[in-house]
Amino acid sequence: MKTTIPLIIVLVGGIIGIIFQFIPHEFVQTINDEILNYFRVLSFFALPLGIVSILMVHTGKIRRKAQHWQYSIILILTIFFMIVTGFVFGTDRFDPRLANYGWNTIFMFMFQQVQIPIESTMFSLLAFYISTAAYRAFRARSKEATILLVASLIVMLGQVSVGQMIPIIGDYIPVISNWIMSNPNMAAKRGILLGVALGMLGTSLKIILGIERAYLGRA
């Protein structure tokens, strides 16, 4: 029973979804839009589950006095700080009460001056990680690895103006780099994409027909 009902819902929902793809009539499309709206609304009901989950993990850590439990206190405090400031002061760009001083609302201040810089910082770590990954990975261990190494060096030089400054071969580097990117690279990518598209179709069909059901928790 516990698996049959979800499977029936998946089957019916899936078949309706497929049929709706082929019927452009306004009557059907309106129903489709409504269903999608409900999906969007329903998904937000799962948000409290997420918050409860994160609170449980961290209150557990504080109770156990696990390693670095002090950070968990900061995490819980910031969660509530953001929720409260959002509700009390609003999420507008300007708080009328602070506007005389040209200040943002506290929520927007936290968002713009704290969250965006932190996210940018995390993103910029990529530069460091790419360098170590490239240093380790590009070794001419075999014939194929050598080809990969040479191609990568050309593309790296082609992406920046330094490549063009090299005498004699400088003019050709961006051209070769472009060729590598738009021919061998593109061909491989398209091959993967076609496989992915077909795999998606097959997996979707398997899910709709109830053949693939591991995601329900019961294989």
Binding site: A127, I130, S131, A134, F138, A140, Q159, V160, S161, V162
Partner: peptide, 21 residues
Amino acid sequence: AQAIAHVVIILFILIGNIGFF
């Protein structure tokens, strides 16, 4: 900055390969 970083990464790759050979 990116141009310099590319050059340095290329140097590192070359150094690694010299060691390997």
